[in-house]
């Protein structure tokens, strides 16, 4: 669940970054405004994500690289 939420936030960050790119592409005062706002959104979300990951790890919701794949039936 926590993992799912983290991935959603990452995707949102990528979208914000993409909007920043479009703003840069448009240029001019309006494009510049749009770029700046998107980048502010992206950095705020990123800081939020970092705190989220740290908190989730602290609470034990996620573990670093947890996967030990189950071995199937022993022959």
């Amino acid at each position: 669940m926590a993992e799912f939420f983290i991935i959603i936030v990452i995707i949102t960050i990528l979208v914000a970054l993409g909007f920043g790119l479009i703003g840069m592409l448009k240029g001019g005062r309006r494009g510049s405004d749009r770029m700046f706002k998107s980048l502010v959104a992206r950095i705020s979300l990123s800081v939020f994500l970092f705190l989220l990951v740290m908190f989730a790890a602290y609470m034990g919701w996620i573990e670093p690289n947890p996967v030990v794949f189950s071995t199937s039936t022993q022959k």
Binding site: L17, G20, M24
Partner: peptide
């Protein structure tokens, strides 16, 4: 923008 990208 490049720096933000590298950051992400």
């Amino acid at each position: 923008w490049y720096w933000h990208f590298v950051d992400v």
